[in-house]
Design a binder for these strands. Structure first.
Length: 983
RNA sequence: GCCCGGAUGGCGGAAUUGGUAGACGCGUCAGACUCAAAAUCUGGUUAUCGCAAGGUAGUGCAGGUUCGAUUCCUGUUCCGGGCACCA
């Protein structure tokens, strides 16, 4: 009986399906375990070998936990709304719902091939109205709530209405407009419009205005992804910033709780750091400066009594507009040499001097064409003086106000005070524009480099002179507050999340507009279904495609749709109760399943999905809909499987005088040169070699080549073996290469190679289906795990898959022999055999528990090898092996489980317990190092004392040789580890 | 530019807490079986010097801490991911 993986895998997949063995339901008698994958976006390209990496890991863990007696929830679904399907629709006229369905069917087929234990009855699909009904419903909860800073939680907006009517907004700072104050009487006096406007400034989901990438030529808003080098990816048209009405989520209100929550969840330190940096909490001060139109004469600037500047109308005028800056270093205020303001702030024109007008206009136009990324990544320093000055409130010094692209309007107040002696970027800016630098650091500043220290003693700093900078902060802050021109402030780098898209393929907002006021739809009107359209082009004025739908606009429905992350912000809850028509998830279900115990997915979601879903969870918790406020207990980040691209090199020839036909020839007959030959490009040998080869190819010795151009082309990795191109397959790959000729090295065509993102356009994708067909699902699963740690990124290489396949056959041969047939027995195992199996059980248990699947596979290989060496074919031993291996290779283990006379699925077996008595050792081979370098080994009892060890060591020949008659300085003896002799 | 990772033989990787660097697998070399091939089995395989015993170097690079560093610290190079409308 042989290992016929194709038949047995198919057989078990069918039987498992028929038996509904992966169906799971809440069972209070068992401990629960919720294992979740980041659900895929069903792209048209299908699944490539990178996708299943995380799925296999989670599948193994789920099966493992199930064997350990847990009730395991392990669902799967599709994140089905998104831009690619819409773009495909625009290009091909196929409705996104249609292409998405087809893609999902394909994904499902591919996933099923691999033998996952998903409970498909719980599948969710974000684009399904029965699902997005609840996305809309949650949106309405966010719209209907505000964040009460006093209680530190979200509460219904209705609570505001009562409070406002009684006490105005006293004690309820308006997050959207912090300076807003009104009394109860004022509130009741406001009309509906004003009241709604104010409420909007409180809501967790609110409407505001924001800048988008606007492409006039395409008449549409573009994603950052679709903008390359400042122009549209499609067509290369100019892209500018445009202000549009947008929806936002007030995630900034949750900033502190998102930070604190990190202490209670198991994310990697790197992930926590990324989220922490993204939230970017900083302590500092907001300071207000007077703005003046021209320089004040030296010596007249300060009023000695108040330390304030008084206006002198003859030499310049003060503007009404004050300059507010946010700084984390108020202690450096005497070192401020210039101010920098974000170029897009709308009040800039009001302060620009006539002389600077043109320069400023030009600069603003330039910045408008630049993306935020470009602005921050730019190494070249740019900026423009406005002609206006701020006035230092303490010494009256006039400070030039500049605009520069590196300051962003969205952060802090959109303006900074620049202290060149203490900040590197400010320093370089000052140097570049020849702005004089004030030294407030004394010796700590060398004039060559900024010094960002907080520990220097301040000089040139008026009333702060002599103070250590870190101590000076509180002093300045107190003074600023006294003078009423500054307040200590906690700032966050994180901005509110833009929550609307001018697109078709997303969830419609359950919002209707009346007289410019947004009203929520009634819950009973959900879902608000996406209308069917024939055309997917944008609407007028940068609106989404829904603005073209008459029935939609007639009802004054919101024409924006929700972004891709809306559906993924709560899907983990829907899995718990996927068919509930009365609620997004019953409290009973969410209380039972609770947090996701293990979440597996890529780091690319570090600051997007993983923050949004945490916020939604917190909001739902605050409102009492669920009982936990962090969605994920533990997160494991799978590495990205990159593609290993292969290249061929086509040459284009220019003939010398008398060989004009060569160009034509090389156009008609594509000639490819091997990688090693290309590497010689530019040398005389190269030219000669190619000439010779071309003469041979075309049978014409008179050919003279003038110049050779080489173009590098991606070639399908699947027709390359290692680096060697299968030239016959290459000719069949594309009709234009049918007549291709090759210039080989050592008789082979060697391809160039590069590690890149796996993508269809780079022809470096490897389809799991092909591997499963060739080696079986079990081999594929184990091979993906064996590649390396799940967390690590690596380029895909199919090369080692044979080894894993061989291992599975070797396992099979423990049970069946090709010639003899059945060889497994019911004999009683020896101690040595027990030792092997228990050691394997123990190691695999530890490895699986810590997600070290690659070493887990290795442990299984070692176990099987050792059992082979022992010629162990005993059922009692092998059965245990099958159980622990079943999570990794479920099909073959299930088959052998039944072959050895077991009834019932191996899935329901229970995990073997280790009998430690077989593993106890009394001695070990200690490595003996001399000065840290291992020189020999000695077998020493584990309970040996320091003295016994020293005696043994000193008697050893090798040690004696190294000691050379001298006594050792020291003998380091670490029990169970090693012994080091220090000379 | 900013934030976060990573770098170990020809290749993927192992070394879980600072304690034998290279487990396991691929590839490759030699051998066994075979008419032959496949499959399978046995042995070698970091480099270098040496017949060997054994020595020397060695975990991207340069330093440091330590009896001992792939592991900790400082600096640096290259590669990957993210940077707010791809998902």
């Amino acid at each position: 009986m042989e290992y016929n993986f194709r038949d047995l895998e198919k057989k078990w997949q069918q039987q498992w399906k028929a038996a509904g063995i992966y169906k799971v339901s809440a069972d209070p008698a068992k401990p629960k375990c919720y294992v979740l994958d980041m659900f895929p976006y069903p792209s048209g390209a299908g699944l490539h070998v990178g996708h299943p990496l995380g799925y296999i890991a989670s599948d193994i863990y789920s099966r493992y936990k199930r064997l350990k007696g847990f009730n395991v929830l392990h669902p799967m679904g599709y994140d089905a709304f998104g831009l690619p399907a819409e773009q495909y629709a625009i290009d091909h006229g196929i409705h996104p719902a249609v292409s998405t369905e087809a893609n999902i069917a394909n994904f499902r087929k591919q996933l099923d091939n691999i033998g996952f234990c998903f409970d498909w009855d719980r599948q969710v699909q974000t684009s399904d109205p029965s699902y997005y009904k609840w996305t809309q419903w949650i949106f309405l909860q966010l719209f209907g709530s505000w964040y009460d800073r006093a209680q530190r939680k979200a509460v219904p907006v209705s609570s505001l209405l009562e409070a406002f009517a009684q006490a105005g907004n006293e004690g309820r700072v308006c997050p959207g407009d912090p300076n807003l104050r009104f009394s109860a009487a004022e509130w009741t006096g406001f009309d509906e419009r004003r009241q709604q406007e104010i409420l909007m400034h409180y809501r967790l989901a609110y409407c505001g205005f924001g800048e988008v990438n606007w492409c006039e030529a395409l008449g549409t808003v573009l994603a950052n992804d679709e903008v390359v080098n400042g122009v549209s990816e499609r067509g290369g048209y100019p892209v500018v910033k445009k202000k549009l009405r947008q929806w936002y989520l007030r995630i900034t209100e949750y900033a502190d709780r998102l930070l604190e929550g990190l202490d209670r969840i198991e994310f990697s330190e790197a992930m926590k750091e990324m989220q922490t940096n993204w939230i970017g909490k900083s302590h500092g001060a907001e300071i207000e400066f007077m703005v003046v139109s021209s320089e004040l004469p030296v010596g007249s600037e300060k009023d000695a009594d108040t330390d304030k500047v008084t206006a002198d109308k003859t030499i310049g005028k003060f503007f009404d507009r004050k300059l507010r800056v946010y700084t984390t270093r108020p202690d450096t205020i005497f070192g401020v040499d210039f101010m920098v303001v974000a170029p897009e702030l709308e009040w800039i024109p009001a302060i620009v001097s006539p002389e600077q007008q043109n320069a400023v206009d030009e600069y603003i136009a330039y910045v408008k064409s630049r993306s935020e990324r470009e602005r921050q990544a730019e190494k070249k320093i740019s900026g423009c003086f406005t002609g206006a000055y701020a006035v230092n409130p303490f010494d009256g010094r006039k400070i030039p106000i500049w605009i520069s692209e590196y300051v962003l309007a969205g952060y802090g107040t959109g303006a900074i005070m620049a202290v060149p002696c203490g900040d590197d970027r400010d320093f370089r800016f000052a140097r570049h524009f020849n702005i004089p630098i004030t030294n407030i650091l004394g010796d700590a500043y060398n004039g060559e480099q900024a010094n960002p220290t907080k520990d220097a003693r301040l000089v040139n700093s008026g009333f702060l002179d002599g103070l250590i900078m870190r101590d000076a902060m509180a002093v300045v802050n107190r003074k600023l507050e006294e003078m009423g021109i500054g307040t200590p402030k906690v700032n966050y780098r994180m901005r509110d999340a833009a929550f609307s898209r001018q697109r078709y393929w997303g969830e419609p907002f359950p919002i209707v507009w009346r007289d410019g006021i947004a009203y929520p739809l009634d819950e009973k009107d959900l879902p608000l279904e996406l209308p069917h359209v024939e055309k997917y082009g944008p609407g007028p004025e940068g609106e989404g495609p829904l603005a073209n739908v008459k029935e939609w606009t007639d009802k004054h429905l919101e024409t924006n749709t929700m972004p891709g992350y809306a559906g993924s912000s709560w899907y983990f809850l829907r899995y718990m109760d996927p068919h509930n028509e009365a609620a997004f998830c019953s409290r009973e279900a969410s209380d039972y399943w609770g947090q996701v115990d293990l979440y597996i997915g890529g780091t690319e979601h570090a600051v997007g999905h993983l923050l949004y879903s945490r916020m939604w969870t917190k909001a739902l918790f605050d409102l009492g809909y669920i009982g936990h406020d962090e969605p994920y207990k533990k997160l494991v980040n799978q590495g990205m499987i990159q593609g290993s691209s292969r290249f061929v090199y086509r040459i284009e020839l220019k003939g010398a005088q008398g060989s004009q036909g060569v160009e034509e020839l090389s156009r008609r007959t594509p000639v490819f040169i091997s990688h090693g030959i290309r590497a010689m490009e530019g040398t005389v040998e190269f030219h000669e070699l190619v000439t010779l080869a071309v003469r041979n190819l075309f049978g014409d010795n008179s050919i003279e080549i003038d110049s050779i151009a080489i173009s590098q082309l991606h070639v399908d990795v699947n027709i390359v073996d290692g680096l060697e191109l299968n030239t016959a397959a290459f000719k069949k790959w594309r009709t234009e290469y049918e007549r291709a000729e090759f210039v080989l090295e050592d008789g082979k065509y060697i391809c160039g190679t590069e590690v890149e993102k796996m993508s269809k356009s780079k022809f470096n994708t490897v389809n799991p289906d092909d591997l499963v067909a060739k080696y079986g699902a079990d081999t594929f699963r184990m091979y993906e795990m064996f590649l390396g740690p799940v967390e690590q990124s690596k380029p895909w290489d199919t090369k080692g898959v044979e080894g894993v396949h061989r291992f599975l056959r070797k396992l099979w041969r423990l049970f069946y022999d090709e010639a003899k047939g059945k060889i497994w027995t019911t004999d009683k195992p020896t101690d040595a055999e027990w030792k092997v199996i228990y050691r394997t059980v123990k190691k695999l248990d530890e490895d699986t528990e810590r997600f070290s699947f690659n070493t887990g596979v290795s442990a299984l290989m070692i176990g099987v090898n050792e059992l082979h060496d022992l010629k162990c074919h005993k059922k009692a031993i092998l059965e245990k092996l099958l159980i622990i291996m079943a999570p990794y290779a479920p099909h073959v283990c299930e088959e052998l489980w039944h072959q050895t006379g077991n009834t019932g699925s191996i899935l329901t077996a229970s995990y073997p317990l280790v009998e430690e008595k077989y593993l106890v050792e009394s001695a070990m081979n200690y490595p003996i190092a001399i000065n840290g370098k291992t020189r020999t080994e000695l077998n020493i009892a584990l309970d040996a004392t320091q003295q016994e060890v020293e005696e043994m060591i000193l008697a050893d020949e090798t040690v004696k040789k190294w000691l050379d008659g001298k006594a050792p300085k020291r003998v380091v003896y670490v029990k169970n580890r090693m012994i080091n002799v220090v000379l």
